[in-house]
């Protein structure tokens, strides 16, 4: 079944960040190799005559992807709301990846500010993608605030640790079977992305794992395949784990046995 994020039906379940690439050309080729249809962007104060920004904008336009702007680096509700409003005008989209940073070492989301900002933005017509934790109570509050997608972290942004709390992510998935859930942040390797997809997550969003790989283009392709494999595996319903061995080769007719069977 296709994944629907607000108004958009997406084919690829990999969302890609656009930061930290060695060059704009490598970013362009990484987007293509990943198969991603949604790419995150941000906004910053204008510097250096705007050349860098102009190159980025034309690159994203040529890639024909849907832009998901973020409010990265915002520490207060007011900053996040103002940034979202500026992003809506700049990128001409109601979509916003809402980040309200609560803590510097882990860049953990501030759940209180996040819920408040989400409420303000959804009532102003935004379609909010909240960057949150796996906390069920916060998740309920975000849905109550009007969010129709949730993006729990796998691990702190840029850490590459993978899924720190698979149990928490499983309970979130079980509790909200019908809400699109995207693991955002902390993914380091394709196996982490596949694990999130095998848990039944609808998509993953990552940036550093591709941008900071030795070969970002090859890694983008690897993540594309991992996300696809993980999704297929989830739909195919993996077998149950067991503690003891269970022979896969039939025992019946085994030679040298004293019994006939």
């Amino acid at each position: 079944m296709a994944l629907k994020l607000y108004d958009l039906e997406v084919g690829s379940r990999l969302l890609l960040g656009s930061a930290l690439y060695p060059s704009p050309d490598i970013l362009r080729r990484a987007i293509a190799a990943s198969g991603a249809e949604i790419v995150t962007l941000s906004l910053r104060r204008e510097t250096a005559g705007g050349r860098e920004s102009a190159v980025l904008v034309s690159l994203i336009e040529e890639a024909a992807v849907r832009v998901l702007p973020n409010t990265a680096g915002c520490h207060s509700v007011k900053e996040a709301v103002t940034t979202a409003q500026m992003a809506r005008e700049l990128f001409d989209t109601p979509w916003i990846k809402l980040e309200v940073v609560g803590e510097e070492d882990t860049l953990a989301p501030d759940p209180f500010g996040l819920v408040e900002a989400a409420r303000i933005l959804t009532s102003d017509g935004f379609q909010v993608f909240p960057y949150t934790t796996e906390d069920l109570v916060v998740a309920e509050a975000l849905l109550d605030a009007g969010c129709q997608v949730l993006m729990p972290w796998g691990a702190p942004i840029g850490s590459g640790r993978g899924l720190n709390n698979p149990y928490g992510l499983r309970t979130l998935r079980a509790h909200f079977p019908d809400i699109p859930l995207i693991v955002d942040a902390g993914i380091g390797r394709p196996s982490h992305a596949a694990e999130a997809m095998e848990l039944g997550y609808d998509a993953v969003l990552l940036n550093t794992a591709v941008a900071k790989a030795g070969d970002p283009i090859a890694m983008a392709a690897a993540f594309g395949k991992a996300v696809e494999a993980g999704r297929l595996a989830f739909e195919a319903e993996p077998m149950e784990e067991r503690d003891m061995a269970s022979p896969s080769t039939p025992l019946a007719g085994l030679p040298f046995s004293m019994s006939e069977a």
């Binding site: 960040g17 656009s18 930061a19 962007l41 906004l43 204008e46 973020n70 990265a72």
Partner: peptide, 10 residues
């Protein structure tokens, strides 16, 4: 006054 432009982001 803040004047902002599109930039890379994750």
């Amino acid at each position: 006054i803040d004047v902002v432009v599109p930039m890379q982001g994750g």
